[in-house]
Design a protein around this nucleic acid. Structure first.
Length: 398
RNA sequence: GCGUCGGUACUCAAGUGGUCAACGAGGGCAGACUGUAAAUCUGCUAGCUUCGGCUUUCGGAAGUUCGAAUCUUCCCCGGCGCACCA
């Protein structure tokens, strides 16, 4: 592994390395095979591109020959990470958690290699956390002070706002810290929102095993103003999305995210990204075209070159040229069926009220005969309907 | 345990007997403008409706009242203060 390669591994998309970049670098240079893990709490059924960023970094370590572990936080997810949470998170049952992580491996396999030599290993932290008795917990709890916990921003904030902080929330970082000890890893990888939790693990490793666990935090997607892109922004593409959907989600990202998403989500070399950045800043090049390249390279990672190319074509046809997309869902209907009923039963709208509102705002059009739907009681006709900008459906009358 | 303040829609948050399906902000949806961006402007954002209304919703249950998110009682949950600290 040459020096530039190592440098890219330890700098691209990285926000911080503890104790230092040099510390990790020295071990790699010595040729040591490192064991590194990334933990994910299965709090929802799908992984999205935000999760993919640290997973991608983990895969880079795998490709460089290091041993990587994807840790499923099936135990910790039941407690709930208080990071970024204004209130205590609802606790999940183990059944819910297991259902959530069912597809994680499949979704992550576009990035990580789960087969062959040096395959990525999946572990579950319930295996050790679930076995601890109260004495073990007390022992663990004695390693950290209440003040250290209260230093955390969101606990401070909650204290100021007179909102509850439950004791079990204090235990969360300790549990995550214990993961490191149980797996005896050399290092941990995670988003930069996880730094506190990861550093707890570093401290615990030092205390219990006298081992310098390193911590690598990766940057999160954020725009020029430093605003983080989260699930709440709605267009965070899921890894389970098909190529078309993923492509169009990425196209609706804010321009401000462009440079950082090239760095974090694609394999395009850094020197090229630097050129792209200069292009954006200095020329009048249409950022749309740059964004198309972004979308294309990301979709290629998850769906392959061919599907990405097709998704790009579909996107151009549908949104740039305003043509009717050719791969839209169709609904079979009878002659007298009302549009409102068909849309409701096919879950295109959530309620009849939503349909009425859409009609009132002129959002529903029959593209085949170019007629806007003006009444909520219109009978369905053969043809393709567009609902708003993104929703399409085809109706076949039998 | 005592006192006191609080629990409101997806989130935050106003409302302290009728004008409340509930101000405002964020998010979301839609329209205009565009590059399906962003920003901006506008409308919508519980459900059903023959468009007259009707039904469900302000922690839970019961009650007072012609009428309750708003008042009373009990219960559940939380913040703060005091007490307790074997």
């Amino acid at each position: 592994m040459n020096k530039d390669h190592i440098d890219e591994l330890l700098s691209r998309g990285i926000s911080n390395i503890y104790p230092s970049k040099e510390f990790v670098q020295a071990q790699i240079v010595k040729g040591k095979k490192l064991t590194i893990y990334l933990g994910i709490d299965p709090t929802g059924p799908t992984l999205h591109l935000g999760h993919a960023i640290p997973i991608k970094k983990l895969s880079e370590f795998q490709k460089a020959g290091h041993k990587v572990i994807l840790l499923m936080g099936d135990f910790t997810a039941m407690i709930g990470d208080p990071t970024d949470k204004g209130t205590a998170r609802k606790q999940l049952t183990h059944t819910e958690v297991m259902a959530n992580l069912k597809n994680y491996k499949k979704q992550a396999s576009a990035l990580l290699n789960f087969k062959g030599k040096n395959k990525a290993e999946i572990k579950f932290n319930s295996k050790w956390l679930g076995k601890m008795n109260f004495e073990d917990v007390i022992d663990l709890a004695s390693k950290m002070t209440v003040q250290q916990m209260l230093e955390r921003d969101m606990f401070k904030k909650r204290t100021e706002e007179n909102k509850p902080i439950f004791i079990h929330e204090f235990l969360y970082p300790l549990m995550q810290a214990y993961d490191s000890v149980a797996m005896n890893v050399d290092g941990e990888l995670g988003g930069n929102d996880q730094i506190f939790n990861m550093l707890c693990g570093r401290d615990l490793m030092k205390t219990l095993k006298n081992k310098e666990k390193f911590v690598i935090s990766v940057k999160l997607l954020e725009d020029n103003n430093g605003k983080k892109m989260g699930k709440s922004d709605g267009n965070m593409a899921k890894l389970s999305d098909n190529a078309d959907l993923m492509y169009s989600s990425i196209m609706s990202w804010n321009d401000g995210l462009l440079v950082s998403s090239f760095e974090l989500c694609t394999n395009i070399p850094m020197f090229e990204i630097e050129i792209i950045r200069k292009n954006i800043e200095t020329t009048s090049a249409n950022p749309r075209d740059i964004k198309m390249r972004l979308a294309r390279s990301i979709v290629t990672i998850y769906h392959g070159e061919k599907n990405a190319e097709e998704a790009e074509k579909n996107w151009e046809n549908t949104f740039s040229k305003k043509e009717i997309p050719d791969n839209i869902g169709s609904i079979n209907a009878k002659v007298e069926d009302l549009l409102i009923d068909l849309f409701l039963s096919n879950k295109i709208v959530a309620s009849k009220m939503e349909f009425r509102r859409l009609v009132e705002s002129g959002a529903i059009t029959n593209l085949t005969n170019d007629e806007k739907i003006l009444s909520a009681n219109d009978v369905a006709k053969n043809g393709v309907y567009r609902i708003g900008k993104k929703r399409f459906c085809k109706i076949n009358i039998k």
